[in-house]
Amino acid sequence: MTSTPPVTGRPTAAPATPARPRPRGQGWLVTLGLMAAAPALLATGLRVLQPGSERLAKLASFIPYGLVFWLPALILLALAAIRAWRRGASGRAALGALSLACAAGLAATVAWQAPAFIPDGRPATTDPVTVVSLNVAQAADPAATARALSGADVVVFAEAHRGWVDSLPERFRAEFRYLAPADGSGEEDDADTVVFSRHPIVSAEALPPSNFQQWSAVVRLPQLGPVRVVAVHPCNPYCRPGLWMQDAAQLRAWLAEHRGTMPMIVAGDFNAVDDHRTMQALYDDGFRSAADLVGAGFVRTWPANTRVPPMIGIDHVLVDDRLTASAFETFGVPGTDHLGVRAVIAGTTG
């Protein structure tokens, strides 16, 4: 009987487990998620670092638009991470980490932006005062301007040369009999700030010289008593290098020196958005935006003379801690590239 020879050699290896295929469309989800995260990350960096250079300040003007991209970035990358974890696909840990980073960016965005949409709730303890600010760009229609400002108590104009001031209708000059400076502006072609009031102006003072001459007026308001109204228009980031920060620092120092004796309202074209370092410095000093106090949200005022709606908010009304705001709105006037801002202000104990 013939026996079967033993089998020799290496044992047969078990078949390898095939790698699980990547979910269909995963590459698109990741690519689009990273593309959305890029502007959000840039905007967050600008918001945290608050650069002082003019070039980066121009980019920082659009921080809110960049921050909103955290939401689509989070949705896309989180969806990609969930699909990767369910299938055990490679890269799932990295996608999970990216999703957490996007969630953190979105949380920071909400923390930064939400207060602008939530009313402060500080109680008004006096009758209200209406303060209006408008950059007339040396060319706003005088009659339309007068109509838009009817009913205001105090009016601040920026870029208002003497010729434009003289062109205002007689009915406006009759309603707002007091102004600072007393002659309406500087030289004929100077585009300075001007304060008009229907109530007596007790005193006026020119701020230190800058690209535009700025003025302060002490107005005796029946609702509040003496109030310092500062009409501002510091230089923009397109001025010569260094002047934007220099003007802002000079204005901040002047305001700090003149605070404490009476309530203060600072209104005009600040050439800065809320996220800029120059505005954040004023908020650190205790000033509050009338728009934020009423929860007006993302207010945009420039440019206002194109088919596209205004993109950024550089016109503001700020108040110190002795004042609050109960209403805020913007309005348009033909001939200028700015929207005007109107704030209803009162005294407070909050």
Rank of each mutant, 00 (worst) to 15 (best):
R83M: 13
A101N: 01
V68K: 08
S90E: 13
Q113P: 04
S99D: 04
R92C: 04
A104G: 14
E54S: 15
W85E: 14
V110W: 12
E54K: 07
L98S: 03
G91D: 05
G66C: 07
Y65C: 02
S53W: 09
S61N: 14
G52L: 07
A80L: 07
I82A: 12
P51Y: 11
L49E: 10
A94I: 15
L98E: 08
A104D: 03
L67K: 03
A114T: 13
A116R: 13
R92N: 01
G66S: 02
V68H: 05
A73K: 01
V68G: 07
V68S: 03
S99L: 05
L100G: 05
P64T: 00
P51D: 10
A97L: 15
S99H: 05
F69P: 03
L98T: 01
L77C: 02
A114G: 06
A84T: 03
R86W: 14
A73Y: 07
G45E: 01
A94S: 11
P115E: 02
L49G: 07
L98G: 07
W85V: 03
R55A: 05
A108M: 15
I63Y: 05
G91N: 07
P72H: 08
L49C: 13
R86K: 12
V68C: 11
A114E: 08
I82V: 15
A93D: 07
A93T: 12
Q50W: 08
L59R: 01
G105P: 00
P64W: 01
L76P: 05
G52D: 04
E54C: 03
S53H: 10
A60F: 00
F62S: 00
L59I: 13
A104Q: 06
L76S: 01
A84K: 02
A108T: 12
T109L: 03
A111D: 14
E54Y: 04
I75W: 10
A116F: 06
A78K: 00
G96T: 11
A104C: 12
G52H: 09
I82Q: 07
R55C: 08
A89T: 09
S99M: 01
A107E: 07
L77K: 04
F69K: 02
A57L: 09
S99V: 03
L46V: 06
R92G: 00
A114K: 02
A107K: 09
G105E: 01
I75Y: 10
A93S: 11
A81R: 00
A89Q: 08
L49V: 15
A60R: 00
S90W: 06
A78S: 15
S53M: 07
W85S: 11
L106S: 09
V48C: 06
G88K: 11
